[in-house]
C-alpha cells in the first residue's frame, strides 16, 4: 500500500459519503444518474466476486463490502425517489455494457490451462468490470451537461471520483517502478477513465470554482 493508492481509495470512499449525504440531507436525487449508479453496482459485484475465494487483507475485504453495500443502497434510494426527474438520464447504457462484455470475453487475464472454469469466468467478469467502470460515468456526465441546476455536492462527488482515478494512475506508476506490478488491462482502461474526467473537470472549473464567491 503506497500513499497514492491510499489517497485514491480515500477519495473513492469520500465520493460515497458525499453522494449519500446529498441523497439523505437534500432528500432529493435530482441530478444523480440512476444509470451510472446501477453500472457502478454492476462493476463492484462483478469485480469483488473474489471475496468468496481469496482473502487479501481486512482493509480490502471491508472496503469491497462497503462499496457493494453503499452502491446497492444508493441505487435503491435513487430508484425509489419519487421526486427524481429521470427525464435527462437518457444515456443508452446498452452501448456501454455490451461492448464491455464482448471486449472482456476476448481481452482478459484467463489461464484456461491453470485454474478451473469458475476462476476463469471470474477473470472475464473482472475484465468486464474494469472496462465498464471506465465508461460508467458517461450517463452522469451527460446529465451534468444537460441540467442547469446541478447542486455543488454532486459536482464535488464527481471531483472526488476524478481524484480517485488520478491517484490510481500515480499508484500504478509507483508500483510498476518499485514492485514490477503491471496489469495492462487495468492501466489502459484506467487511463481512458481518467481522460473522461478531464471533460468533467473543465465543467467543474467553470460551474463551481469560478462561481464560488459572489
Amino acid at each position: 500500500m503506497n500513499i497514492f493508492r491510499f489517497v485514491g481509495d480515500m477519495s473513492h470512499l469520500a465520493s460515497f459519503f458525499l453522494l449519500l449525504a446529498k441523497l439523505i440531507y437534500t432528500k432529493s436525487s435530482t441530478g444523480v444518474s440512476l444509470k451510472t449508479q446501477a453500472l457502478y453496482l454492476t462493476v463492484f459485484v462483478c469485480r469483488y466476486l473474489d471475496l468468496l475465494v481469496a482473502f487479501v487483507s481486512w482493509y480490502n475485504e471491508l472496503m469491497k463490502i462497503f462499496f457493494i453495500a453503499a452502491s446497492a443502497y444508493i441505487v435503491y434510494v435513487v430508484a425509489t425517489s419519487t421526486r427524481n426527474s429521470n427525464a435527462s438520464d437518457t444515456y443508452r447504457v446498452e452501448f456501454l455494457v455490451i461492448p464491455a462484455l464482448v471486449l472482456a470475453c476476448f481481452v482478459n487475464e484467463t489461464h484456461w490451462s491453470k485454474g478451473g472454469w469458475s476462476l476463469n469466468v471470474m477473470e472475464i467478469l473482472w475484465a468486464f468490470s474494469i472496462y465498464l467502470e471506465a465508461v460508467a460515468v458517461l450517463p452522469q456526465l451527460k446529465m451534468l451537461h444537460q441540467l442547469e441546476d446541478t447542486t455543488n455536492i454532486t459536482m464535488h462527488y464527481m471531483a472526488s471520483l476524478g481524484i480517485y482515478r488520478a491517484f490510481y494512475l500515480l499508484n500504478w506508476v509507483y508500483r510498476l517502478y518499485y514492485e514490477g506490478y503491471w496489469h495492462p488491462i487495468a492501466v489502459v482502461a484506467g487511463i481512458v477513465q481518467t481522460l473522461l474526467y478531464a471533460d468533467f473537470f473543465i465543467l467543474y472549473y467553470q460551474s463551481v470554482l469560478l462561481r464560488l464567491p459572489s
Binding site: 473474489d50 475465494v53 487479501v56 487483507s57 480490502n60 485454474g115 476462476l119 471470474m122 496489469h183
Partner: peptide
C-alpha cells in the same frame, strides 16, 4: 497465479 493473488486493488 490463482485469481486474487495479484489482484489486490479495489
Amino acid at each position: 497465479d490463482a485469481f486474487g493473488d495479484s489482484k489486490d486493488e479495489l
